[in-house]
Design a protein around this nucleic acid. Sequence first.
DNA 1: AATGGTGCTGCATACGTATGCAAGAAAGAC
DNA 2: GTCTTTCTTGCATACGTATGCAGCACCATT
Lengths: 343, 343
Amino acid sequence: MSAEKANSLDVARRAGVSQSAVSRVFTPGASVSKKMSERVLKAAAELGYRPNVLARSLITGRSRIIGLVVAYLENQFYPDALEKLSNALKKRGYHILVFMASNDREGVDQVMQELLDYQVDGIITASVAISNDLTTRCKAAGIPVVLFNRDQDGVKLSAVTSDNYAGAKKIADFLVRGGHRRIAHIAGWAGSSTGRDRQAGFRAGLKQSSRKLHVCVDGMYSREVAAAAVHQMFKKRWKPDAIFVGNDHMAFGVMDALRYDLGLDVPGDVSVVGYDDVPLAAWPTYDLTTLRQPSNRMVEATVDTLLGQIEGTAGQYKKIRIDGPLIVRGTARIPDGWVDEGL
Amino acid sequence: MSAEKANSLDVARRAGVSQSAVSRVFTPGASVSKKMSERVLKAAAELGYRPNVLARSLITGRSRIIGLVVAYLENQFYPDALEKLSNALKKRGYHILVFMASNDREGVDQVMQELLDYQVDGIITASVAISNDLTTRCKAAGIPVVLFNRDQDGVKLSAVTSDNYAGAKKIADFLVRGGHRRIAHIAGWAGSSTGRDRQAGFRAGLKQSSRKLHVCVDGMYSREVAAAAVHQMFKKRWKPDAIFVGNDHMAFGVMDALRYDLGLDVPGDVSVVGYDDVPLAAWPTYDLTTLRQPSNRMVEATVDTLLGQIEGTAGQYKKIRIDGPLIVRGTARIPDGWVDEGL
DNA sequence: AATGGTGCTGCATACGTATGCAAGAAAGAC
DNA sequence: GTCTTTCTTGCATACGTATGCAGCACCATT
């Protein structure tokens, strides 16, 4: 009823105790008698009192806010991850402050600076790169950072990714054994570790079977760029009979271009394999063969690592790579005698 | 270099001025001489000082945090809106704290309570309903709330929606004039204003042409439920020749069920119309005829309304309904002589 | 009864910032 | 030159909470 919010002092007065007592009742693990606790909680309930998280953070030095920097939510992988991260963090008493960033360094750095203004306890960056300058700044301020679905060379930050190298290698093997002759790759942005690792793993896999990459284009993680790459590839005399696309989001654009612009059949004329296994990949329209990034486990690892560093139980940064299975669906020819590891 | 962050007092000492002076330099509109400003900014830069937003909020009573409550990000409409909201708010100096909520009232209320703990300046709820109890609580605490893409009867809160009634009516008209005889509706959750308004508008539109709804099922905004509804409808003797689906997300599930489970052609055998116009709807696989919710304008209106109330320039709550065009694509028969309003 | 220990509680202070007030400086008017 | 007005600055205090310290009460042990 009262216009203003009640604070701990109001509660203290109503319960006839000191302000410290109120604080202790709302501090888990503090020393309070049962009687005291009851009195205070009663008064608090009557006034609708709840502790002010911001004021609390001022003195504890903990805001219980995690900053999340993310570049774009168009690729379904990220909203999905955001949702899971938010839920996992909520369970442990933290919440997410969202920052959209353009993918260039400047943009990210500026945004991270704003993040720090909020005294966040930790930072998760989803598929964006940050400058070394800012890295040292975070380290100086003692703010843990975890890179999600991206790593960065020579940077002493925790990173959680899937095993992109191994995953792409699996795909190469799958396509080779499927009898494809001209295998192309539309890569993830070469400026990202994820894009580079997948490309490297894919090349390594082909090499192991003495094959060479027929053609390779940077798709920049963009549906449009990937579609344009397809057009380019199919103008040439020797057209690919298989394409490994750097993520599902681009793969959908590639399939649409193949089917609707070029009138080709997938996988009759061309096999397509993606990477991520976003929910859309399982829809029958696409039914995309793809390598699953186990987002549940990636999120778990991210949260564990981050909170470990925040709460001081884990000391150093770590690089975590999580293995994912190849999900065989209908967009790529299945090799004879292929045994599905998904089961 | 120093382990601890610099505060305004450190800056003051280094610049040889008072702490208040530092504060004023970083407070837009405060009275400071040019010389003072330069000295302070120099010292601040040397120490890497930036004001602590949380401490500031304690005294100003403004956190510059907006709470966003959202139920699910699977429907592409919401990540898209989230991104746009975040960008629009950032421009005006606010940031978004995200809370995922299950769609039942209890879940939402609990989450809103947590939100209030963070002293947010305002709240945006995306397609979730909140209890009257909590509504009055927010009002008592003086925290403005804007409902996004959802309204609530008898609740004195601002709400921004598209004109669902008029939009659905347009669709009814479009289908009738397209010569469809048995027009079905897979509705959005009847517990939501959005779902109800679209259904009511659709029925009204049919009635205007003396038609009746052939069959109507609640799709609960779920892809699976909507697909099951399709199966149900096509088991009957009299099968629909057109379906208006309560949003695009369900419409995709409906189309998949029609094409892949039942082997039907869209729009040859059945016309399908959606609602939202998410990016996916424009992809050639779906090429969905749908009513566009103008998310840019909805976001603008939401931000304007919310900040208007926060900054005290706008007094009362308002209900804003934004008109959207019918985007005619390839999933529904086009009436002879139809003039596209999209242009 | 005296001693030691344990469990609660209140007092006082600190966190980092903004702002009303009054005093000082500068500038203008005559 | 004096007086008034406008700017600029520092002092002191407030925001709402957590926590070290000391004191108190209570109980158990000797």
